[in-house]
Amino acid sequence: MEKQEYNACETLIHVCAKCKKDEKILIVTDPDSLHIAQALWKAAAEFPNRSLIMMPTQTMHGQEPTALVVAAMLEADVIFRPTKFSISSTEAKRNACKNGARDLNCSDYDERMLKSGGLYVDFEAQEENVTKMSKLIEGDDVVITSPAGTYFTANITDRKSFPQYGRSVVAGQTSSPPDIECAIGANVGTANGIVFIDGSIPHPRLGLITEPIRLEIKNSRIVKIDGGEQAKILSEILAEYDNPSVYHIGEIGVGMNPACELTGRMLEDEGCAGTIHFGIGDDRVFGGNNACPIHLDAVFKNPTMSVNGNIILQDGKLNLK
């Protein structure tokens, strides 16, 4: 393993998880991400109670893992999850955290992410800004625009923010390093507008967006998808589920990691400073109750966002005063 890759794994183990010598550390992986899991395994050589378990590669974010993985997660103190598709929006993860596990989502990692980018930020130094944003993003009415033509509104009354520091250092905490963000859920039926996705949709068939995808949203549901070839692909992906719940818009997330760049990889893209992403599908992590077999993030660039008329993001730049 190269020194940079080892350093990134050391950051995950010692900074993002603060693993203790006697803790039960579980690495959950699949064939597509085994090389990342092996790097973590080697970097965690000093921890005698570490275990690695592999399941088949899944087909979409949000699918439940196998029964043996579920059982192992319930026994772990710390869980690292280098898998191709994320299992963050699953009962398995929620129950493991309820049981006290510190959970770190490492889905869709590649070797480049271990060598440069968001994992090389000073995680602790970013906490103050995320905490400020977690207060500013709460309120009643949200308005989001972008130079591409986005105009989106939603109500968030009584919704609590979900700050993501990229670290899981207390029991029950979950994170997705290098994703540093602050998100909030829109109240059901209140999200409306036109959104132009011009950043990325981290899915094997999409990735970086080359031609903006126009989403028409009514009553928190995508009712129309327009654009070029990638818009057709997104339509196909959602239609394959034959489930109206997959068109739901629940999560509004603000990327806050200045070291991240848009790459088509989910955890880099979600955390990329200067972007907003909407979570399509399952929103239970964000205080909603839309249960479905998919959670897909759609990222757009240079947004302006106001809450109760207070601008907290101006053309992609944070305004945390």
Rank of each mutant, 00 (worst) to 15 (best):
E268P: 00
I25Y: 11
Y241L: 12
D158I: 00
K224W: 00
E240F: 00
V28I: 15
M54D: 01
K3Q: 12
G199M: 09
A183K: 01
R265A: 04
N192G: 09
A37K: 12
V285N: 07
K18D: 13
C292V: 08
D30M: 12
E216K: 11
I311Q: 08
A8P: 08
P56T: 06
K42S: 06
A76M: 03
E181R: 13
A71Y: 07
F162I: 06
G228N: 01
D122N: 15
T83Y: 09
S146K: 05
E211I: 04
Q173Y: 03
V195T: 06
P56H: 08
A101R: 01
N49H: 10
I225N: 11
N243D: 14
D158W: 02
D32Y: 12
L136P: 05
E138V: 13
Y109R: 02
G271R: 01
G281W: 10
G172W: 07
F47C: 05
I36W: 12
A259I: 00
H295V: 10
I53F: 00
V307F: 07
A186N: 13
I217N: 10
V246F: 05
G255S: 05
E2T: 09
D22L: 14
L206C: 09
P258I: 04
E236L: 04
I36Q: 10
L114R: 03
M305W: 08
G250E: 03
V223Q: 07
Y151L: 14
L52R: 12
N289W: 04
V195W: 03
N99C: 14
S89F: 06
D32L: 14
N105K: 00
I233P: 01
C106P: 03
F162Y: 10
D283V: 10
M1V: 11
I201F: 01
N99Q: 14
G228P: 03
C292M: 04
F300G: 12
G118F: 11
N99K: 14
T304D: 09
L136R: 15
I79Q: 12
A298K: 05
Y151E: 06
N290I: 00
K20N: 09
G279A: 08
I144N: 00
A231K: 01
E181D: 15
Y151H: 13
M256K: 04
E229L: 05
T174P: 00
R102S: 07
R81A: 15
L262M: 10
I311E: 11
A298N: 09
T275I: 09
P31L: 07
A72S: 13
P244F: 10
A101H: 00
